[in-house]
Amino acid sequence: MANIILGFPNRIDSAVLAGGAWVESLPLANLQDRALARIARSLSLDSTSTQFTIDLQQQRTLKVLAFVAHNFSLSARISLIFSNAADFSDPILTITSDAWPSVSDAEWDLDALEWENDNFWLGTYLQEDIEGQTPTCSILLPQDVLARYVKVSIDDSSNAAGFVQIGRLFLGGAFLQPVINNDRGATIGYEDSTNVDMALSGAEYFDRREPVRVMRFTLSELSVDEGFGSALELVRRAGVSGEVFVIANPDDRTYGATRNFLGRLRQLSTLEILGTMSARQGWLHSMAFEIKELR
């Protein structure tokens, strides 16, 4: 199990996006709108329509890229090119990833799948598995990349909708990844704000709301630099409104679509100076986190 990553800040809002072919009323610029309902939608599934470039205006350290509230099919693939040349003539990193985990990059237990299952041959999610929560495709780069330009190409030619759409894009660095992972007892769950009304007869009626993910964990063995330079600095800069992308376990390529999400700090925790020493890290510090998924 690899150590948790908190991605911050989201560099997409100060970037310049261009390329592809997008519905006039649902433009590429909607990726820079925090309202997930304001989507960017391609005119078609043609490769020239579903690609675009990102100019970050200056070199940025990048580690995490995530598509939030997308409609990618189970067979979609994403290609990324990072460069400091506007024409991408000198790429720093080129990477291709499945939008959803599959046997090509995840450890699915094929023995647990029935012959009749839709995903028997792919070893991936069923359609019903990905419904009922905000679809999130997160791509963790193999190393930190210092780059100004990113080219995104989406290959989803079998998408039944006839287009791809995305509600939000996260692009940022790993602001905090502790040397020692979070304590045992970390939790992730769903909160459901569905309204329930009861008639005089006792019959119940529901105003259905989509559940949101909430993760709680504590980092109790932070070094001085991790405590003051990352954890406390994240609290100061993000506040309760800043976007934070959670990657619970970077090695989890099977359930990452469930465990990784775009959220915010629900409350601003204090940094506790424990007064105990570690041979590797000096004085230890502790901070608790509660991160609520954004809609």
Rank of each mutant, 00 (worst) to 15 (best):
R60N: 07
P211T: 06
L268M: 06
L271Y: 06
D207I: 13
A203G: 00
A66I: 02
I291L: 02
D90N: 14
S201P: 01
S79V: 01
T254E: 02
T48R: 11
L268E: 12
S220E: 04
V196S: 05
F228M: 12
I154F: 00
L31G: 03
N182E: 07
V23A: 10
M277V: 09
R253D: 07
Y190M: 03
A85E: 12
N182M: 11
D197W: 14
P135W: 14
L176D: 04
V224L: 11
L171S: 01
D111T: 10
T187G: 05
F289Y: 03
A2H: 12
T61P: 01
F228S: 05
A15T: 08
Q143F: 13
S157Q: 12
T48F: 07
A279W: 02
L43N: 15
H285Y: 15
Q177I: 09
D251C: 13
F170N: 04
D98K: 08
S278I: 00
P91M: 09
R237W: 14
N119S: 14
A76N: 03
Q165L: 13
G227E: 04
L200P: 04
D251M: 15
E114W: 11
G263M: 04
P91D: 07
L222G: 05
I273V: 12
M1L: 14
I81D: 03
V164I: 15
I12P: 01
S97R: 15
V64Y: 01
A85I: 12
D98T: 08
D98G: 06
L294R: 02
N260T: 06
D144A: 14
S83R: 11
L74Y: 03
Q281T: 02
D183L: 15
F170Y: 12
W115N: 00
P250R: 15
D207N: 13
D105N: 14
A15Q: 04
D129M: 02
Q267S: 15
L28V: 09
D251H: 15
N71E: 12
S97M: 06
S25A: 15
G256M: 05
E116L: 01
F175T: 01
V212S: 04
F175K: 01
P142A: 09
Q51F: 04
D90Y: 05
A2D: 13
R34S: 07
R209G: 03
A279S: 08
D251G: 10
D155H: 11
R295H: 08
L31E: 09
R266M: 11
I78P: 01
R208M: 11
S14Q: 13
S153D: 15
A112I: 00
T94P: 06
A69T: 09
S153W: 08
L113A: 03
I39G: 01
Q281Y: 08
T136G: 02
E243Y: 07
I81N: 08
T194Y: 08
W22L: 07
E107D: 15
F217A: 01
R237D: 12
D144T: 12
Q133L: 11
L126P: 00
D13G: 05
L176P: 01
L284S: 00
N84W: 11
G173K: 10
N182R: 14
